[in-house]
Design a protein around this nucleic acid. Structure first.
Lengths: 330, 330
DNA sequence: TTGTAAGCGTTATCAC
DNA sequence: GTGATAACGCTTACAA
């Protein structure tokens, strides 16, 4: 490994001067500067980031926490963040929690040890109380998830609105027996709460009572969707429409429904969430709530970098719009 | 930031002793060890990886180079690698080239600067001659891509065989007009070459001539698939079957075909590559060549870690099997 | 068994 | 404008 000293020797200057060249210190005689540059070139020198970090200068790594990178929602998010980061000279560390609390905490430790200069959390497994202490070590930006009492920047979409317009759309199509199939739990905070409220609000406005049997929680994958359809098929009183928490669940659901001889949307209307590529190629095309994923990622990255460069506010909420994409499944 | 010295002070020992405790040096009196452990706990101490790296000890980061993380093939690959890495205490740096040569080289520099201890390349943009020099700085493992003259470990599947059985399957179904729609180019080396050879071999065996009009290159996305279908529709002499280089292209193709009133597989048979989740939910279900993506990623991770821990061979070729998954699109 | 001191590659301070 | 020199936090001879 070639170091600053090798360069100094070759250029016939002190290592201080080399360092100054590297960091674009203004007052250097042009000829020495050129010598140094030439020596660096010749030796193929690259400054050692560990040393720079240790010395307290460098900050070039951001971490993105996601539950599962294979979930297209998150891979698109990571994609957008990586692009912003690279553009500004940052590397992106991908942290997959697999919904494991411990793993999440271990990744938060990256902040403490300055292996990551900032973190974007696109999912949260632990309670905020357990995460908050880490904000001391570096900026944390919440993206997609949000905590009401958290004093950090948050990039979110209006989940309440998204769910509301989705369910309302089903009601407008004449449905009154509408199941709700969510990735989260039917809980009382954060994203889940907002989605639930949207569902309940839409039903309430139409004078429809929530049927607890039609609330299906903790569904994520295509496989989950297929199984959920089985559950629905076994019900004596079956819903005529299903609101799902992701396009993948919807895909599995449709697959199983068609296999069971149901016609979509005639026998069962299905609506997804996200507007992933899969939504378009499903047959019939999947009506869904589009989340501006790229925008979210881009914004999250920008906000984090602004904080790192001291040019942005420490906390703020950015809300991006959702949109109902009507295809043929409803 | 709390350092080893703080711990030493609190525990009433020298920093050397603390370091020994951290590194599980055997000969330490149990009581001192306990004091140190207690102090570390109390201060919430975590060793600074930059310092350890600088000192030349630590190796905990691997980098994975992919063209696009949003491509499910690569997100599954990264997923598998990350899991293996985490299990062994390594972090995974995700490097997205966007098929940009320069970006790829900049990521290879991670090796040189010891920001990454090893690299898994799941795609290659530059010529091997330009990449080879980096092997001097740390191990590079090729996964999915391969270079004949490269002296590094390679994890690959038999692309030749995969394409061959796919095309053969179409021939067995009675097709003789078979288009070939690939992600790469119809070039003469690596993965592309093998796939092309498989295609040509299967045709040759059946006494079928290659029709250059039906060779469609540089197709990747669902969108590409749709456009390709348009191209096909405009042909006077249209193929009756299409072999595609990925399930996504196949998906787009099917979508456009159905929209144009074609019935699949009656009017047009379609076969994909990868067996991604999308293959199952397409209608009709997509016949495809399954690549053992998770296995590939797992193997690549293991091979790299073995090298880093000096317990594995420096170069070897691991070939994993492909499998024809027959659904309803053929 | 424990401690002292040197050094990893860089940058900041202070002289000149 | 330039160069010694001391840190940054850690590991490891070498001594004790």
């Amino acid at each position: 490994m070639t170091t600053i000293i090798d360069v100094a020797r070759l250029a016939g200057v002190s290592k201080t001067t080399v360092s100054r060249v590297i960091n674009n210190y203004p007052h250097i005689s042009p000829d020495k500067k050129e010598q140094v540059l030439k020596a660096m070139e010749q030796l193929g020198f690259t400054p050692n980031p560990s040393a720079r970090r240790l010395r307290g200068q460098l900050a070039t790594t951001i971490a993105v926490v996601v539950p599962k990178i294979v979930n297209p929602f998150f891979s698109y998010l990571v994609d957008a963040i990586e692009q912003v980061g690279y553009w500004k000279g940052y590397q992106t560390l991908i942290c997959q929690t697999n919904e494991d609390k411990e793993k999440e905490l271990s990744y938060l430790n990256l902040l403490k040890t300055k292996q990551a200069d900032g973190i974007i959390m696109a999912s949260i497994e632990n309670d905020w109380e357990d995460i908050k202490p880490y904000t001391e070590y570096g900026p944390i930006v919440l993206c997609n998830e949000y905590i009401n009492r958290a004093d950090v920047p948050m990039i979110r979409v209006d989940q309440y609105q998204g769910t509301y317009i989705g369910v309302k759309h089903l009601i407008d199509r004449g449905h009154r027996k509408i199941a709700y199939c969510t990735g989260g739990l039917f809980t009382d905070f954060g994203k889940d709460r907002d989605r639930n409220m949207g569902y309940q609000k839409a039903l309430a406005e139409a004078g429809i009572q929530v049927n607890p049997n039609w609330i299906l929680v903790d569904k994520h994958t295509i496989e989950d969707g297929k199984q959920t359809m089985q559950q629905l098929l076994e019900m004596k009183d079956r819903p005529t429409a299903v609101f799902t928490g992701s396009d993948e669940i919807a895909g599995g659901l449709m697959l199983a429904a068609k296999k069971a001889g149901l016609s979509i949307p005639r026998d069962l209307a299905v609506i997804g969430f996200d507007d992933q590529p899969i939504a378009e190629v499903l047959d019939p095309g999947l009506t869904t709530i589009r989340q501006p994923i790229e925008q979210m990622g881009k914004k999250a990255g920008e906000v984090l970098l602004d904080i790192l460069n001291q040019t942005g506010p420490g906390a703020a909420v950015y809300e991006l719009p959702v949109e109902l994409i009507i295809r043929q499944s409803t």
